Amino acid sequence: MSARPFLRISTPVNGLLAALGLAAVAALTTRNIGATARLSLELLLGGLWLFYVVQLADTLVLWQAADRRTPIAELLIDAAAVFVPLAAFLLVDSRDQSLFCGIWLLKPLRESTFFRLLGRVVSRAAPNLIGVTSLFGIVLFGASLIAYLIERDVQPDKFGSVPQAMWWAVVTLSTTGYGDEIPQTLAGRVLAGLVMMSGIGIFALWAGILATGFFEEVRRQDFVRNWQLVAAVPLFQKLGSAAFVEIVRALRPRVVPAGAIICRKGEAGDQMFFIVEGRVAIATSSPTPIELGPGSFFGEMALISGEPRSATVSAATEVSLLSLYSEDFQMLSSSNPEIADVIRKTADERRGVAPRH
Score class of each variant (00 low, 15 high):
Phe214Leu: 14
Ala354Glu: 07
Ala87Met: 07
Ala302Phe: 03
Pro85Trp: 08
Arg249Lys: 12
Ala231Val: 00
Phe297Met: 10
Phe141Ile: 14
Ser285Ala: 10
Phe51Asp: 08
Ile9Glu: 05
Ile290Cys: 00
Gln64Asp: 07
Gly193Gln: 12
Glu181Phe: 02
Ala192Asn: 08
Val276Pro: 05
Ser241Gln: 06
Thr185Phe: 05
Asn336Asp: 08
Gly293Ser: 14
Leu86Thr: 15
Ser144Val: 01
Leu48Ile: 15
Phe83Val: 14
Ala57His: 04
Trp206Gly: 00
Glu111Arg: 13
Gly293Glu: 13
Thr36Gln: 13
Gly266Asp: 01
Gly208Phe: 01
Glu277Tyr: 10
Ser112Glu: 11
Gly352Gln: 11
Asn336Arg: 09
Val162Leu: 11
Leu239Ala: 07
Gly131Pro: 07
Arg69Trp: 04
Asp328Asn: 15
Gly240His: 07
Thr284Phe: 02
Ala169Pro: 08
Gly142Thr: 11
Leu28His: 07
Ser320Asn: 06
Glu217Arg: 09
Ala165His: 03
Leu129Ser: 07
Pro156Phe: 08
Gly119Gln: 12
Ala281Arg: 12
Ala192Trp: 05
Leu16Gln: 01
Ser320Asp: 00
Glu181Arg: 15
Ala232Asp: 12
Ser161Trp: 10
Leu20Lys: 00
Gly240Ser: 07
Glu318Asp: 14
Trp227Gly: 02
Asp58Tyr: 09
Lys238Gly: 12
Leu303Asn: 01
Ala79Lys: 10
Pro127Gly: 08
Phe115Ile: 15
Met301Ile: 06
Glu216Asn: 13
Glu307Phe: 03
Ile275Leu: 03
Leu44His: 05
Gly15Leu: 13
Val84Met: 04
Ala258Asn: 11
Arg344Ala: 13
Asn336Ile: 15
Leu235Ala: 09
Asn128Met: 14
Pro287Val: 03
Ala37Asp: 11
Arg264Phe: 01
Gly193Tyr: 03
Val233Lys: 02
Gly295Ser: 05
Phe6Cys: 06
Gln271Glu: 15
Ser241Pro: 00
Asp58Leu: 10
Gly137Asp: 03
Trp227Thr: 15
Arg309Ala: 02
Leu62Tyr: 05
Thr185Leu: 07
Phe298Leu: 08
Glu318Tyr: 01
Val13Glu: 02
Gly131Glu: 10
Ala302Asp: 01
Pro355Val: 08
Val162Gln: 07
Gly102Arg: 04
Thr176Gly: 05
Trp49Tyr: 01
Val280Gly: 00
Thr30Ile: 12
Lys158His: 12
Arg264Ser: 14
Gly102Gln: 02
Asn128Ala: 14
Gln221Ile: 09
Val233Leu: 04
Gln237Phe: 01
Pro289Glu: 02
Phe203Arg: 02
Arg152Asn: 15
Thr284Cys: 03
Asp180Val: 13
Arg152Asp: 09
Tyr178Glu: 09
Gly306Cys: 03
Ala204Leu: 04
Pro337Val: 09
Asp180Leu: 12
Val248Arg: 03
Pro12Cys: 05
Glu74Lys: 09
Glu42Asp: 12
Ile339Pro: 05
Ala27Cys: 02
Val139Cys: 12
Lys107Cys: 13
Asp93Ala: 15
Gln228Tyr: 10
Arg254Asn: 07
Gly199Ser: 07
